[in-house]
Design a protein around this nucleic acid. Structure first.
Lengths: 207, 207
DNA sequence: TGTGGAGTTCTACGTTTGTGGAAATACTTG
DNA sequence: CAAGTATTTCCACAAACGTAGAACTCCACA
């Protein structure tokens, strides 16, 4: 009837390998990062990610196995952030809080690291891998650097509180978008938050 | 063979109204609160909620219409929390930070208010209603009380930062369960956090 | 006493989801 | 040039989800 057995003029996209090195793997990771950041782990469907990357969903399976493999690879891409935070702590202890705070918010607003941070946060509630990463970022890395050689466990709590504070402000500003935090200048936010972070890192009682 | 057309001895649960006033509506709200707190809005399915409440899923539809109606009713149950936080701010401004911090963590650990706070937080990413509630809690209510009669907009930022700080620590302690925050005594956490909150509320620059 | 409404269960429909397999095409290596 | 491997598409499946409707039972009120 309406079907033309011979030579259908309207072909679907042909299967098979494309010519040249199509940066498909990277396109998928970029799309996954953006959609995980917007809708979280379960909220971002494989088909939606594939669609944004302009490929078929089967490719995700081919490259990353299953969905948990995809988010693992996605989050592994943006591993530079924790290192830069730890690096910010080295140097004069009297201004470490300022440097840490500055670096933290700069990371959130940089186009290459910000979406990954948002992806971790938004996915944490529904993906064990993202939750582990978030727990580690609040936990070990920074605490080790603050505790340092002396190994004062008293300061671990201070380090955790400093990071928790930064996390809370980031959530309010970038995720919840609560006013006036969301529209304040970054420098203004940093200037107000840094003293509190500094006090936590220094271990002052603060009465 | 195994089917008995006449007089099936094994009856399924009979439909129809139960005798006595079964607090079913409240059972559903309790189950919804717990499951929203554990798995978030989309993560908690209607069937799971109905199952936990010991009723059929159709009942949820009967009482609350659809899923968004259910979470609206669930979150409307625990509306006492914001009021108590605002109330904690009244009184001596010099110790308002301490009272606010104390009240905040007490609410998180009280069996009647804690799960609702967790439900709001975990559902915020996938339910617009929960997100609105969260935004309002970081925003308006507390800011109004802090700004007070004078209407100093400068202090709105301080109030938002104070709440953001509390939110961040609560997330780290109760949701992420990062050490050592998760296992610290509540009094210890409060004692460490309160000074920072106090400074934000007082509007000190803090250099 | 009988009639309507509220509470309650069951079954089912359409959609979306993650996953799996089969086939097609291009590149690579012998 | 032949064989194998990597990339890519399509189709299909089973499960879970929100929602819908029909039927059944009990209570309140006329």
């Amino acid at each position: 009837m309406s079907e033309t057995d011979e030579q259908p003029t309207r072909r679907k996209r042909p299967s098979g390998r494309r010519t040249g090195d199509s940066g498909t793997r990277q396109a998928i990771l970029g799309a996954a990062r953006d959609l995980f950041a917007q809708h979280g782990y379960t909220g971002a469907s494989m088909r939606a990610i594939a669609g944004r990357a302009g490929v078929d969903a089967g490719l995700i399976r081919h490259f990353f196995g299953d969905k948990s493999g995809l988010i693992a690879a996605t989050l592994a891409e943006g591993t530079t952030a924790p290192d830069r935070l730890v690096a910010a702590l080295r140097g004069d202890p009297g201004t470490a809080g300022m440097r840490l705070t500055e670096t933290y918010f700069a990371l959130w607003e940089a186009p290459d690291t910000g979406p990954t941070l948002a992806a971790v946060l938004r996915s944490a509630f529904t993906s064990p891998k993202a939750m582990d990463l978030l727990r580690a970022s609040v936990g070990t890395r920074i605490q080790e650097q603050v505790i340092g050689v002396h190994g004062d466990p008293e300061r671990a709590a201070g380090a955790a509180l400093a990071v928790s504070h930064l996390l809370g402000v980031a959530i309010a500003r970038y995720v919840i978008e609560a006013e006036p935090l969301a529209t304040m200048d970054r420098a203004d936010v940093v200037a107000r938050v840094a003293p509190a972070v500094q006090r936590y890192l220094a271990g002052e009682s603060g009465h």
